[in-house]
């Protein structure tokens, strides 16, 4: 038992996920019942998960948020919630790549060799990253190779690797049957990965494996055309 209590949340997919982690494991986890509606579902879910953990906001010692990649509007709901909670409660806010959560799910369900984790990027594209499975502190975990990217499934160089996640499930012709595990990012998995970094003996953590700044991984520019030319009314 430790005094740690982390609230973790993820809004990088159609499903909202919230969890509480006590430093040794996930003590409560909830996900939204409805797809989308992140702004409506997230705050009530946080209340529920804290109650389920037998905790109050005053017991929290840190916030972990999925930083995507994921559809922008929902992703921002999670990030602004995490950063404002952190500001108001004076707690550290840490980011973890949402794909890492999907990858951890695959490893926990038996993946031991390199694979791809992919989520739905809409517009017939997927957000994806490549993972290797290594052992940290006696636990098998996925370690991402580089930053995630966004691509059309057909343009991915899979090299025969299996794939996990909603993105794989959406395009079975390209990815085959998805690896076992949750299709969407789980806040519990994010918290577990964050704790692997936080538990490192060196507090300076010169080389965090999972922790990122709590800033969105958009991977795409805003859709907007510079439009300062005039439409003429006279023919």
């Amino acid at each position: 038992m430790t005094d740690e209590l982390t609230l973790a949340l993820d809004t990088a997919s159609a499903m909202v996920s919230v969890a509480v982690h006590d430093g040794t494991g996930v003590v409560a986890e909830r996900s939204g019942e409805r797809s989308g509606k992140h702004a409506e579902q997230l705050a009530p879910l946080i209340e529920e998960v804290l109650t389920e953990a037998g905790a109050t906001r005053a017991d929290l010692t840190g916030i972990v948020t999925g930083v995507g990649p994921g559809p922008f509007t929902g992703l921002r709901v999670g990030l602004v919630t995490a950063t404002v909670l952190g500001y108001a409660l004076d707690l550290p806010v840490r980011g973890v790549c949402s794909l890492d959560a999907v990858a951890l799910g695959a490893v926990q369900h038996g993946a031991t060799t390199p694979f791809i984790a992919a989520t739905d990027a809409r517009r017939r594209e997927v957000y994806w990253a490549r993972y290797e499975v290594t052992k940290i502190d006696g636990v098998l975990v996925p370690v991402r190779e580089g930053l995630p990217d966004v691509s059309a499934p057909a343009e991915l160089e899979l090299d025969g690797l299996p794939a996990a996640g909603r993105g794989a499930d959406l395009y079975p012709d390209i990815f085959g049957t998805p690896l076992e595990g949750p299709l969407d990012p789980s806040a519990g998995a994010l918290a577990s990965l964050a704790h692997l970094d936080l538990a490192q003996p060196d507090p300076a953590q010169p080389n965090p494996r999972f922790l990122l700044d709590p800033e969105p991984l958009y991977l795409r520019r805003p859709d907007a055309q510079a439009n300062i030319t005039r439409k003429r009314v006279l023919k």
């Binding site: 709901v77 919630t81 404002v84 108001a88 409660l89």
Partner: peptide, 11 residues
């Protein structure tokens, strides 16, 4: 709206 809810929750 999400920021306001976070404040209401935190406070």
């Amino acid at each position: 709206v999400a920021a306001a809810k976070a404040l209401a929750l935190a406070l």
